[in-house]
Amino acid sequence: MPDDAPLLSVRDLRVSFRTFDGQADVLQGVNLDVPRGTRVGLVGESGCGKSVTMKTIMGTLATPPARVTHGQIMFDGQDLLTMPAARRNRLKGTDMSMVFQDPTTSLNPVFRVGHQMEDIVRWSDRRRGIQRNHKARKARVLEVLEMVRLADGERIYDAFPIQLSGGMRQRIIIGMALLNEPRLLIADEPGTALDVTTQDEILRLMDDLVREEGLSLLMITHNLGVVRQMTDHVYVMYAGSVVEDSPTAELFDNPSHPYTKALLACVPKLDGTATYEGIGGSLPDYTDPPAGCRFHPRCPHATDRCLTRPPAFTVRPGHTAACWLHEPEAHA
């Protein structure tokens, strides 16, 4: 396997859900790459399918009602979707781990922090066939607490979650994800539940850790400002497919898909130049999605072309937009 192949590569991933209203085709062929040592963002509004994508990658999607109907998820050269369940479980939480959004609900309130962290070490040791005693496990936990810049690790080891602030709890969640020295970190809206100042500190910490430990990061968020600050490459999702993907700086300088443009226009700006146009209409019903481009009923540029689904056209090297406006002939 060549080392320049992406660590994670999702190809034409399609996921459907069986619902009372019929089959909901939620993911409609998602393509996504996380190259080694890079920070990648997946951004979109509620209901766009970013969490389903993340859960499918992590293998935590409930099946049924969901069903992966097509596609590949290559992690370090192996397809996660076809490998035996036992092997996939070994990868989950060790080579790839997850940072959850809400620090209040992802820690168990009745166990001490150190106890919960040690549990993770014990279980993954067992899966990997390693034997470590309590002292060695505790040493690893204290080491990780120091990594996430929590001074006074001994005290935090013995603390209950309720005795810690939101920012400290979020650091512990990050620490838990780092316990097994993962290569890929998947972060779901980290810090969104916190104040801006604390969120800022958490994002800086994650950024430092990703660099120091040479991790690859896939960050899922609805906040365009966070994506701009934290990632090298961005995927914008709308209604179950990636509508635009681009190097981060390029996306913000030169947004190309009408949805990305409209979304950026909605974000309140610090210079006071907000427009309140919003985006008319609402997200389509996944059991009866519009034909062709799923954004066309809300798009100001829609034409008859849009009834056919557009492929991802290259706008510039490394920057694609799934919109007929960017079809090469159209510009000629």
Binding site: S165, G166, G167, D195, V196, T197, T198, Q199, D200, E201, L203, R204, N223, L224, G225, V226, R228, Q229, F252, L264, V267, K269, L270, D271
Partner: peptide, 26 residues
């Protein structure tokens, strides 16, 4: 400190943020 910690979406806004050091602690 509050203004310095807002994530923004353009260079023009970045220029409006105070350059002071980030707030420590909670």
């Amino acid at each position: 400190g509050l203004l310095a910690s807002i994530p923004v979406v353009s260079e023009a806004e970045e220029a409006l943020k105070p350059t002071q050091r980030h707030l420590k602690g909670e």
